[in-house]
């Protein structure tokens, strides 16, 4: 069973640049949701601020377009409130790894059942071309005129080292593969981080479609994504030596909801039945 993909179409006018990598991600996401037979009202997409973060406007599902760097906490709150919602975070590299970096660390620890798609174009687009946490060292930008001085952030090795239960990388220019990774990530029980490489046609003149296309390669069918040591090796492969895409690391782990009896064995919190008099018994604590 699949859902009619047209149900996911939004009437909102799109503000992305022509040729932007975000289009590939948006189209793949619609396909993934459709193939997973999810209905628009069953999905919530949260985002922060940036070009990628406009995605909730361009797809017809529930959306919460919050503050810069704060796409993840509302997703967590919403998932706790209604565990039946499929909660997906779609936002950029600046939003995920820069301004809200702290939230990734702690939600990997929570292993809450949400999917985090990072639109990683290795640059700040909406603010017009400054270096992002994933911009290569030495790359010249509109702000770092002599080149970026600091080491780039490696989201893959970072997530694996924290014990993230699903770590993947994909490329917006390979839709079929991206749809596959997205579906696996959405189906995964726990926190799933997918770093999606995408070109910024306006501000990143280094990491172009061609640059990525020449370097990405799909992980071999025999690759064992449950082997942490192998995963670490893959995490550090980058640049001219090739960039592996696919599910790099996966681990079975209890989720936040499994660990919370009030959520695990109960109906969703939004259906909690409560009357004020039920709290009357707590006055015994104060006698």
């Amino acid at each position: 069973m699949t859902t009619d993909i047209n149900l996911f179409n939004s009437m909102d006018e799109n503000a992305w640049c022509p040729g932007c990598g975000n289009f590939g991600i948006l189209n793949a996401l619609k396909e993934a949701l459709s193939e997973l037979d999810l209905k628009p009202h069953e999905v919530l997409i949260t985002s922060g601020i940036g070009q990628a973060a406009k995605l909730p406007h361009y797809i017809n599902v529930n959306g919460f377009n919050g503050l810069h760097g704060r796409a993840v906490p509302p997703a967590v709150g919403a998932k706790i409130a209604n565990k039946n919602l499929k909660v997906i975070v779609n936002t950029g590299d600046g939003d995920s790894y820069g301004e809200g970096g702290n939230h990734i660390i702690h939600n990997i620890r929570r292993n809450i059942d949400i999917t985090h798609f990072v639109h990683d174009n290795q640059i700040y687009g909406l603010t017009k071309g400054q270096g992002s946490p994933t911009t290569a060292k030495g790359q010249k930008t509109t702000l770092q005129l002599e080149g970026v001085k600091v080491d780039p952030f490696n989201p893959i090795s970072f997530a694996i080292s924290l014990g993230c239960s699903f770590v993947a990388r994909a490329f917006s220019g390979d839709k079929e593969h991206l749809v596959y990774v997205m579906k696996e990530a959405i189906k995964h029980k726990g926190y799933a981080l997918v770093d999606i490489l995408q070109p910024c046609v306006s501000f990143n003149k280094v990491n172009t479609y061609r640059w990525y296309k020449e370097r990405v390669y799909k992980l071999d069918k025999n690759y064992d994504c449950t082997n942490k040591e192998e995963a670490f090796k893959k995490a550090f492969e980058w640049g001219d030596e090739g960039i592996p895409i696919g599910i790099i690391y996966k681990e079975k782990k209890s989720t936040y909801i499994d660990r919370t009896p009030q959520l695990n064995s109960k109906p969703p919190l939004i259906n909690r039945e409560w009357k004020p008099v039920y709290a009357e018994k707590f006055m015994e604590d104060f006698i």
Binding site: L44, T46, F64, G66, L67, R70, V72, P73, P74, A75, V76, G77, A78, K79, I80, A81, N82, L85, N102, H103, I105, H106, L269, I270, R272
Partner: peptide, 19 residues
């Protein structure tokens, strides 16, 4: 929460979702 920014944003997300 990991910090107060997360705390309030989680509460906002939960309220938006209906609790």
């Amino acid at each position: 929460a990991e910090d107060e920014i997360a705390a309030i944003n989680m509460a906002i997300g939960a309220s938006f979702a209906g609790v």
